[in-house]
Computed example of a mutant assay.
Amino acid sequence: MSSLKRLTVLGPGVLGSQIAWHSAFKGKTVTVYGITQDTVDRCRTAHEQYAAVYRSELGAGDVDISATRQRLAYSTDLAAAVAEADLVIEAVPEIPGVKTAVFEEMAKLLPPHTLVATNSSTLLPSDFASATGRPDKFCALHFANMIWAMNYAEVMAHPLTSRETLTEVTEFAVEIGMVPIALRKEQNGYVANSWVVPMLSAAQTLVTNGIATPEDVDRTYLLTGGKVGPFGMIDMIGMKTCHNVLSYWGSVSGDAQMNANAEYIKTRFLDRGLLGLQTGRGYYEYPDPAFERPDFLAVPDIAVVPDLVTLMSPETEDPA
């Protein structure tokens, strides 16, 4: 059993809010830190939504939900938020400079025993180890969106991570109901995102370049037996995270298509305040997205053929 009883989550966004709620649901005492009161308030609202999800999908009762709420605290004061933490999980935006700044600010505030983990989805723990001020007590612990259903946690060390840190962090993951995925060496993208990000980028390219609609891309995935297609996944991950990942790696690699995909998401979604599932609208509208409707994969009436042919005809102008 780990000694990690008190958790602080830095960053109350889509995944940070899920990590906090789920950890509290599993018995941990949790403080959520947000840089502004607005971000904290949005996290509180998300937690009320998760209460409903845990009732319907996990069978949580009133006692469970009440106990979870009692284990949660919220703060905009970083020093106070980490003052008693046994473990801090960083879940701020997937921008290296932002993460580094947070680690450097936090380093002087942490108790000596506190372990630190990054929930980065594509970046390496060695990128930030020195900024934490305690590289031996630092590793990656990456969760999946919809943590209550996709309950795995990827654990990745950097060269200076101690065995004791890996033991405690992996035990913590098991204690909150996660299947630990042990990475044998550092890898950008970890396990899941090493294949998810290329898939989502390829799907986005099809839409950015006017090849197919998001719905049709998702149909080709769902008809193989999947439950959520690439654009449903993008909505769930959140437009901000998807944009940040595509923009960063597009710049690093000089990939013009990846940069174009990032710009597409920015202009059509972020600039309009559409963040995906978080705001109820992205590629789909929620809580009743089209891909969950019974007719989404139905064979259409033959009368739609002329419209489809018009879309495919070379002389048809691209509406985008």
Rank of each mutant, 00 (worst) to 15 (best):
S3V: 10
R6I: 02
L10W: 02
V14S: 14
V14F: 07
A24I: 00
V30C: 04
T36R: 14
D38T: 11
D38M: 08
C43S: 07
C43R: 01
H47L: 07
A51S: 11
R55G: 05
A60M: 06
I65K: 02
I65F: 02
R69V: 03
Q70W: 00
T76R: 04
T76D: 03
D77A: 01
A81F: 04
A83P: 02
E84V: 01
D86L: 02
D86A: 01
A91V: 05
A91E: 05
I95G: 02
K99Q: 06
K108H: 03
L110W: 03
A117D: 08
S120W: 06
S121T: 14
S126Q: 13
S126I: 10
D127A: 15
R134N: 08
K137G: 09
L141S: 14
L141C: 14
I147L: 15
A153E: 10
E154A: 15
V155C: 06
T161R: 07
E164P: 01
E164S: 04
L166D: 10
E168Y: 02
E175V: 09
I176N: 05
G177V: 04
G177H: 04
A182S: 03
A182H: 08
N193G: 11
W195S: 14
V196E: 10
V196W: 05
M199S: 12
L206D: 01
E215V: 09
R219G: 08
L222P: 03
G226D: 08
K227E: 05
P230T: 15
G232P: 05
M236A: 13
T241Q: 15
C242M: 15
V245K: 10
G254S: 12
A260Q: 06
N261H: 12
E263A: 10
D271R: 06
T279A: 12
P287I: 13
P287G: 13
F291C: 08
F291S: 06
V299A: 15
D301M: 10
A303N: 07
V305S: 11
P306D: 12
T310H: 13
L311A: 14
P314K: 10
E315N: 11
